[in-house]
Amino acid sequence: MKKSVFLGALTVAGLAAGVAGAATLDDVKARGKLNCGVTTGLVGFAAPDANGEWEGFDVGVCRAVAAAVLGDPTAVEFVPTTGKTRFTALASGEIDILPRNTTWTFSRDVDLKFTFIGVNYYDGQGFMVPKELGVSSAKELDGATVCIQTGTTTELNLADFFRVNNITYEPVPIETNAEAQQQFLAGACDVYTTDASGLAATRATFENPGDYAVLPEIISKEPLGPLVRHGDDEWADIARWTLNALIAAEEYGVTSANVDELASAPTDNPEINRLLGTEGELGAMFGLEPTWAVAAIKAGGNYGELFEKNIGENTPIGLARGLNAQYTDGGLLYTPPFR
């Protein structure tokens, strides 16, 4: 009941804002800054450093869009949002784009009136156990105590998984990831379950990460993507193709290091030429500079560079590319052609 009222209110907000803020691009250009909604802090995805500068994988998307639209990757106003305030902030126009680890679901797309512009990270719910438990598959977890964040989709996924496999578990409800970490280390639960990226980040903070293992089963689909308001397709196009440009840049080997060189003169590859604006007029089609993609790639590098710098295998979080590899490497990243 409460939830439906809340969602209803959000819907009204979405409608009102959709009508009012039809030209986000003009607003952003007039303001000279992109208002970008991020988390209040999530390891690897968005966090302020000691000087208050925001860094992270989601932050990289903000900077790329700002660079594409305004030509300046620092022209971003970061608005920290919580899981509860994020959708209203977007619907009411307080922010222009929300790259905040948000799972693309039917109801969010359709009922809440948002447009997901793509997926920047394919996540899924996993399990972490101490190695001394001697478990190698989630299906062996019969009778285990599980630390689980209450009120999240992970809770429902967990119940589904155990019911389908006809095994039992005992939930240990917890509120935050911080609490989960403490409880799990103290042995209050055998298993900790949340998104696999979160598990990796949590495991990285342990004193002896080697004593803990993430089980191979991924029991849910959590495609995390940036979203914008319904009803402003021009703005959604800009956001979508900026993300696509980062992905395509990796596919074609365009990096922040060589983008200037490749953009200085047309290359042999027409796809790169169209992407970097040395051939065709793609930028002008949605009202941006011809070098919009060059600016976006220079902001923080292509998709692969962003991934490696913030959450990749050389960072403490150490996530493998997995599903987030290019389709040519067996992953799911596949951008439509720039033509």
Binding site: L42, P80, K84, A178, Q181, A201, T205, P316
Partner: peptide, 26 residues
């Protein structure tokens, strides 16, 4: 106010923990 996304000291503690250097400091 940290619940509505304002960065008060407790919210900031969370944001600091989101830095890979300090993740796990409570």
């Amino acid at each position: 106010v940290s619940i509505i996304g304002l960065i008060d000291p407790l919210g900031l503690a969370n944001a600091i923990r989101a830095d890979t250097a300090w993740n796990g400091v409570y």
